[in-house]
Design a protein around this nucleic acid. Structure first.
Length: 616
DNA sequence: GCAAGGTC
């Protein structure tokens, strides 16, 4: 019997289907000489410190540097503390039984670093010695799957990939566990002060933005506004110059020749510019973009959206949710018209679905090269039945986005009129000529609203117009906005882009901080640690969070660059570089950050507890 | 009591 092991049940079932294996057993599917089984993501995790004899949190244990790491079955939290997940234990037993009977093992976990690690941890934990082959496919179509099976790779081809994954895993443990204990112990706090390669730079982003806003000094500035009349149609123009001094603005204000001062035609049109602007449809959703949209539209947290989407996935209504790709391949695209067809007669989207079936579909979201392990989120075509309100909302964002993505571009006409009236004024207007994809949700542009002049009258250069009103406007510069879940998710995705070092920036170009699957839980961790609270939709640091930030802000552990450095080295390991060197560096770094935190954290708890009292 | 990674 050949055993195929996938990363998750949905993939295992899909592979079985392609082979025509249909006998459903507990935890696997059998047929045609194969058994198809699966993990549920990581079944195993690195054992916690106490399993190496580091009982209790004690200064003398630090840094904790296990000679050899142990693996343990994934734990879940219950009222009696952390216990082995019984479902995971059961599935591992099933995998063990299948591996024992196997004549050949075929690894079909996701084609990437973590997929490799998921399998290898199982394999080594079960002390399996049988050789294995690797299925390596980047598309899940029947044809790609069949081709992949005709072209299985020797398992050892991926040893270096495993090495890089293994280093990632152990390094996160070493740095995270030691830094957390070091800070918590030295701070003298009763609570846990956790630190980690991803959570701490995330906290730093929230805190530094908060402090930037807190210390922001608004600057006053002045603008002039005039209202003009073209054959009864009124429109507004604003001075091009912002005046720092009120006197300067006032001087020019006095010179504006409006009708009330006895000038029938005080303004002269200098230039008129009208340009069409084409907006391509948005890309299909990946998890992060959907979490951002759900946060903006409905105020859902990243974690809520992930859970709702997982529910839709388990009811087979949407494709795999934890994807980082906003593209689909040509094979999936071929099925899109059928998906659109299903929306005919839909209460909100039916009309647009009808329209799309009559025109060529936009292919902006179709690019097989940009599909990684999983493609963008699409509906499956199954009919939903009695969804809860929140699930329904998410589902509609998925189908609505599908219609948008394959829709036509939106064409706007942007008009700029320059006017001379003692100073130069500008009137801006935007008119939608062809709504295209924007007709799906029929909402106005959320970014910049040209609310003053949706549509400007037709005027010509040289024309003179009456000024029916004038005003001196006092304005203030504004600070950046506080992070909310949407803007934080976006910032995590792109955090690599601000890195100055070109190599580190390159190393993070496809990753950012965290991964689509983990970002929601990072936000939840910061909230559970009481580093951050939600205030309305904003993520606001607490005194505790700010105190921790103050201790670590100049340390490497608070910089996104740390992930960039690791990614660069891990990629080198994947292509064959030494593992020993990297491990030695990580151990050295663990020693130094641990020592620094043991000193720098002293008295920290008192500090933020005192501040809390002052606040009250 | 603790990381980051994956998933039901």
């Amino acid at each position: 019997m050949k055993i195929v092991i996938a990363e998750k049940p949905s993939v295992g079932r899909e592979l079985a289907k392609v082979f025509g294996a249909t006998t459903k057993k507990d935890g696997y599917i059998e047929g045609k000489g194969y058994s198809f089984t699966w993990a549920f993501g990581h079944l195993l995790q690195l054992a916690p410190p106490q399993e190496y004899g580091f009982i209790g949190w004690r200064r003398q244990h630090l840094p904790m540097l296990p000679q050899k790491f142990k693996l343990g079955i994934r734990k879940i939290k219950t009222k009696d503390g952390m216990v082995e997940d019984p479902g995971v234990r059961k599935q591992l037993d099933i995998i063990k039984k299948l591996f024992d009977e196997a004549t050949e093992i075929i690894v079909a976990t996701d084609a990437g670093r973590e997929g490799e690690l998921i399998f290898r941890y199982i394999y080594y934990f079960l002390k399996c010695k049988k050789p294995f082959k690797r299925l390596w496919i980047s598309s899940q179509t029947d044809e790609a799957i069949k081709e992949g099976f005709r072209n299985l790779k020797p398992g050892t081809d991926y040893d270096t990939l495993f090495n890089s994954a293994h280093c990632r895993s152990e390094s996160d443990w070493l740095v995270g566990m030691n830094a957390t204990q070091a800070l918590s112990i030295s701070a003298g706090a009763r609570s846990v002060l956790s630190l980690g390669r991803v959570q701490t730079p995330t906290l730093a982003m929230i805190c530094s933005r908060f402090l930037e806003i807190k210390h922001f000094v608004p600057q006053l500035y002045y603008q002039l506004a005039i209202q003009l009349d073209k054959d009864g149609q009124l429109f507004k123009a604003i001075s091009v110059i912002n005046f720092d001094k009120k006197e300067d603005a006032e001087a020019l204000f006095e010179k504006i020749e409006d009708v009330a001062s006895g000038f029938p035609n005080g303004a002269k049109v200098l230039t008129v510019e009208a340009k069409p602007r084409k907006e391509p449809p948005p890309l299909l959703h990946d998890l992060s973009s959907l979490q951002q949209e759900a946060n903006k539209r409905k105020g859902f947290t990243a974690d809520q959206t992930l859970n709702l989407l997982q529910g839709l996935y388990e009811s087979k209504l949407v494709t795999y949710p934890r994807t980082g790709s906003r593209y689909i391949g040509d094979d999936v695209f071929a099925g899109v018209p059928v998906l659109i067809e299903k929306l005919k007669g839909h209460q909100d989207f039916g009309k647009q679905a009808d329209f799309l079936l009559t025109v060529p579909l936009n292919k902006r979201s179709v690019n097989a090269k940009k599909v990684t392990d999983h493609h963008a989120i699409l509906p499956t075509g199954e009919s939903p039945y009695q969804l809860t309100g929140d699930k329904q909302a998410i589902y509609e964002m998925v189908i609505g986005r599908m219609l948008e993505a394959f829709h036509q571009e939106c064409v706007k006409e942007i008009t700029k009129i320059a006017i001379e009236a003692g100073s130069v004024f500008m009137a801006n207007g935007t008119v939608i000529r062809s709504a295209g994809w924007r007709s799906v949700f029929n909402e106005s542009d959320d970014e910049k609203k040209d609310e003053e002049n949706p549509s400007l009258p037709k005027v010509k250069a040289g024309e003179e117009l009456p000024i029916v009103n004038k005003a001196l406007l006092e304005k203030q510069t504004k600070p950046k906005a506080m992070y909310n879940e949407a803007s934080l998710l976006k910032a995590l995705e792109t955090s690599g882009k601000d890195i100055e070092d070109e190599e580190l920036r390159y190393a993070m170009k496809d990753s950012g901080l965290g991964t689509p699957a983990t970002r929601a839980s990072i936000i939840e961790t910061l909230i559970n640690r009481e580093y951050v609270v939600r205030e309305k939709r904003n993520l606001v640091p607490t005194n505790k969070g700010l105190a921790v930030y103050d201790v670590v802000k100049d340390q490497k552990i608070a910089q996104a660059e740390l992930t960039g450095q690791w990614e660069k080295r891990l990629e080198e390991i994947r292509s064959g570089a030494s593992v020993t060197d990297f491990k030695a560096e990580i151990i050295e770094y663990t020693r130094s950050i641990t020592n620094e935190l043991l000193q720098a954290g002293a008295g920290l708890a008192e500090k933020f507890m005192k501040e809390e009292k002052v606040d009250k």
